[in-house]
């Protein structure tokens, strides 16, 4: 197992190198002027341009910039964000936990939700029930998250006033201990709901297909013949066997969610990696953009590794073969 993990880590190195080169090239090709975005929509005084370009070495030849960056990254230095006036790594380490929190809690709701709907739709004998859930899931999945987010805000925050409209926490708070946790949870509720509905519906569709596939397997027929009840069959045979494709999809999408749910973070003013990415592209804060992309890539690699390990745990055949 350890060898397996090390092997994966070694694969990651050339990947990151490629990401750096590709991102540098792309960002180099897009027109943009970081100094202009510092000044706003008034002309940049030449003296100011000179100072900033010199300080952040914006005029170094392209190859020198890439070379310096690769060497720095090998030393654990991901550069300096001139739009945030701090090291990129600091910035990512500060923003990532916010995104991880949103994604983890979102998945914690999305997976059971998707599994429940998938199992109900897949095992029902009533075609009407199946149609209802399949169609609802498809419609819910098709709603763009930014619109869904706005709807949730309008309903639960503005109309009922149950939750705050946006943000990751109160700007003024006197709460401590459990109250503090509860307060935080209120800010988390709507983004998580939007996230869970969207991702959950995707999982529901995969789960349903997988359940139907499992139902046609010989061991289900055997189980039925043994006289097991419907509930027992679902619990003991279908759930576990149908979960494998879900684990794959959930693993991938969790990995990419760690790169920041850009639209969701914008709609709920959740200052995680997604918002950081949007701002950095807009302001041409290139080193921050590359830093976030590297983080996202690492997140996907790590999640794939975890998926492989989960596979082995879920399916004894893979375990023994490995």
């Amino acid at each position: 197992m350890l060898r397996f993990i090390l092997q994966r880590a070694l694969y990651a190195l050339p990947l990151i190198f490629v990401i750096i080169v590709v991102m540098f090239t792309l960002l180099h090709l897009i027109p943009g002027d970081p100094v202009q975005s510092l000044v706003g929509d008034y002309p940049v005084p030449p003296a100011y341009r000179a100072v900033i370009e010199e300080k952040y070495r914006l005029n170094d030849p392209f190859v020198v910039q890439v070379g310096n960056y690769v060497v720095a990254v090998l030393h654990g230095d991901f550069g300096f964000s001139y739009q945030n006036q701090r090291p990129v790594l600091d910035l990512i380490l500060e923003r990532a936990p916010r995104t991880i929190l949103l994604a983890s809690v979102g998945f914690a709701f999305a997976i059971p939700l998707g599994m429940a709907i998938g199992v109900v739709a897949g095992t029902t004998r009533n075609p009407g029930t199946d149609k209802f859930w399949t169609t609802s899931a498809l419609i819910a999945y098709a709603i763009p998250t930014f619109w869904l987010g706005q709807l949730l805000v309008m309903l639960f925050a503005l109309r009922f006033g149950w939750f705050p409209t946006q943000g990751i926490g109160p700007l003024i708070s006197r709460a401590h201990g459990f109250d503090w946790l509860l307060e935080k949870a209120r800010y988390l509720a709507l983004p998580v709901l939007a996230f869970a509905i969207h991702e959950g519906m995707r999982f529901a569709r995969i789960m349903r297909a997988s359940v139907i596939d499992t139902l046609s397997q010989g061991y289900i027929v055997t189980a039925r013949a043994k006289g097991l009840s419907r509930g027992q069959i679902i619990r003991n045979h279908i759930l576990r066997n149908s979960s494998l494709p879900l684990v794959t999809i959930a693993g991938y999408s969790f990995g990419s969610a760690l790169g920041g749910a850009v639209l969701l973070e914008t709609v709920f003013t959740w200052p995680g990696l997604g918002l950081l990415m949007v701002d950095s592209i807009r302001l041409r804060d290139n080193l921050t953009v590359i830093g976030v992309v590297i983080f996202s890539a690492l997140a996907v690699i790590v999640m794939n590794l975890i998926v492989d390990i989960l596979y082995a745990l879920l399916d004894p055949r893979i375990r023994t073969a490995g």
Binding site: Q150, V153, A157, L158, T165, Q166, G167, T266, V267, F268, T269, L275, V278, D279
Partner: peptide
Amino acid sequence: IPNPQQRLN
């Protein structure tokens, strides 16, 4: 708050 609708909200 970068999103105008969210500022109004």
